[in-house]
Nucleic acid binder design. Structure first.
Lengths: 348, 348
DNA sequence: ATTAGCACTCTAACCGATTGAGTGCTAACA
DNA sequence: TGTTAGCACTCAATCGGTTAGAGTGCTAAT
């Protein structure tokens, strides 16, 4: 078994980069012209033969050039990620700037759109996970006709509206009192900390409106559950049509379906979190992707944070020959922008 | 020029229905077997020749069967719509039931999903148009750190949140006063009716907080503008892959892109409203569709209403050979369901 | 007015030959 | 011993030609 010396590695990278641009198997002549050191096609061929034996590249058929295998990409990506701490340059490129918006969901969708546009791949993004978030306050307002509006605001300024149907009409004053009561007891707590004890205490202090309190708390729980369902936004799905290897047969259809249904994407985003990586970048290549319809794709994910414990994930979905370097850089830079935006929001 | 007698019409319908199912040009033999009256292929051929001369059908090439033209479909659809008032039967089929939800946007997205699933075409739906809606009330809440939450609720229970950044912190009492002041002056008005006169009157009554009032009114305006942008939801885009005639060349890509971008769809939904039709059903066939990437499609739209003046549109997008009957029926039945849901919401 | 019969047309499918890119191997070379 | 030139070989893609079949239009008979 031959060993992976530096020259073989250079050739492997050359193959990966060429294939990245062309999408077609690359041959020995091409590499010979591409490399800085002068080597004849024949020599390259020998090296390629070794690389194939080692499993880093394959030929689609006997008389074709070589394309990288998952293992080849894996090596390349691992090297890239560890060589990280690249010296500035920052690659801002045609990076659009994120316009400030107040509603978190809007922001997330905008981010997905921007990422898709910048990378030419598909982008996905999850809403922030609630759970450990502190409840900021609840606001009850009368809507007439026996209904009240319950606005639930939690840390990170995530706002949810719920319209509650209480049979009776309730007086302004009672509602105000209830409002104060609820906020005094619940504000600052995480969702987990709202125990039965606290609930019964509240009901005890205003047993007249126990039923309404129940409904309000249900609404709070509902908001949580709805958010737990982990809203996923996608954008740039049509970008996959730019990569022929993803559009053959029913592949395009299945991919687009998956991106629209969104449920399966949860698999990617909810997989093992415990990573020690410098910036929580994860790369899934081909078969590593935990979604069946995406076995021909690669997915790069990153984790964002917007407050203690409130975090979500961003993912870029593209062909296996995607420009990993660019995608990783773009994700990192997007993260920084996000950090700025959210710290802005908390300061000013 | 031959004239369109009842037999020719029957043959035309037979062609349309066969083509609907198969997606392939239909020949004289097929029709001969399909019709109830016994006619030889030769006779059918003569009639088809006439139909072609009249422009209702064409041959893709010399020795192929016939397919309907836009004009043919138009005739068919017009007949169908006027023959309307079909005797019950109701065609409920595998119609899923709409689960009640409180947030209007959720409801709309769910409807789009259901329509797409029921019809096997793509569905689009616009959020309700604001504009003539009456403002129900505004609710201001302190958020700390110099910010307040402004919740704008309008008729039809459309709720919008805005986080406002006022420099200073404002006292609970002032905010409450402001709240009451704003609601007294604005509640029940349509967006158009909030004139400069009213605004200056409000500011006059609490000139200390004039700036905050400005910001709140800006937020109201912003909510309107955001809503005027007419949010469009789509679903079932991948369904187009089921129709080969829509997936040749770049068509699929363009269609999916259009459905994701959504902007162009505004053209469909904002076109001439003034229709006297029994239930506001509009059918666009092929070239009639006001969106370039959809010239090979047909679009059926319907208008829904959820309060005085608050209305939006639903659209089904499919191949020209779509099952118009089914689509129209499905849309109508969905409308009825919607009516029930919204009236429920207003009664109980 | 309808129909059977037939010649005609055109597409899709199939087939074989050709081309060209790319390889693997061998032998010469530094 | 590593590198390279030369050459035979392989295989996908392409092209031209043939075939099969579906469907038509026309004519003549009913």
């Amino acid at each position: 078994m031959p060993t992976l010396d530096v020259r073989k590695e250079k050739i492997l990278y050359a193959i990966i980069q060429n294939y990245q641009e062309s999408g077609e198997p690359v041959g020995s002549r091409t590499i010979s012209k591409y490399l800085d050191v002068k080597l004849s096609p024949a020599t390259i061929r020998n090296e390629m033969s070794d690389l194939e034996e080692m499993g880093y590249i394959v030929q689609p058929h006997t008389s074709a050039g070589r394309i990288p295998t998952d293992k080849g990409y894996r090596l390349y990506v691992d090297r890239m990620l560890s060589e990280r701490a690249l010296p500035a340059e920052q690659r801002t490129e045609n990076q659009f700037l994120i316009k400030r918006v107040d509603r978190v969901e809007e922001l997330l969708m905008q981010m997905a759109r921007i990422l898709a546009a910048n990378t030419n791949y598909a982008a996905m993004i999850t809403g922030p996970k609630y759970q450990k978030t502190k409840l900021k306050f609840i606001q009850l307002s009368p809507m007439g006709e026996g209904r009240i509006l319950a606005v639930v605001v939690s840390e990170g300024n995530i706002v949810k509206n719920n319209i509650l149907n209480i049979g009776e009409d309730i007086s302004q004053e009672s509602l105000l009192g209830l409002n104060i009561l609820l906020n005094q007891n619940l504000a600052g707590l995480t969702m987990d900390e709202i125990s039965l004890e606290i609930i019964s205490k509240i009901k005890h202090e205003d047993d007249e409106h126990a039923e309404i309190i129940n409904k309000v708390l249900d609404a709070v729980a509902e908001s949580i559950r709805e958010n737990d369902k982990m809203r996923i936004f996608t954008s740039g799905a049509p970008n996959i049509f730019k990569y022929p290897e993803l559009t053959g047969g029913d592949k395009a259809s299945e991919l687009i379906s998956t991106l629209e249904e969104k449920e399966p994407l949860g698999n990617i985003v909810s997989s093992v979190d415990g990573e020690d990586g410098r910036h929580d970048i994860q790369v899934y290549i081909g078969d590593e992707v935990p979604v069946d319809s995406m076995k021909d794709c690669s997915v790069v994910t990153a984790t964002y944070e917007l407050g203690e414990g409130v975090q979500g994930k961003i993912g870029i979905i593209g062909p296996k020959r995607m420009d990993y370097q660019k995608v990783v850089d773009t994700l990192k830079s997007t993260m920084s922008q996000l950090d700025v935006i959210f710290s802005d929001e908390n300061d000013s």
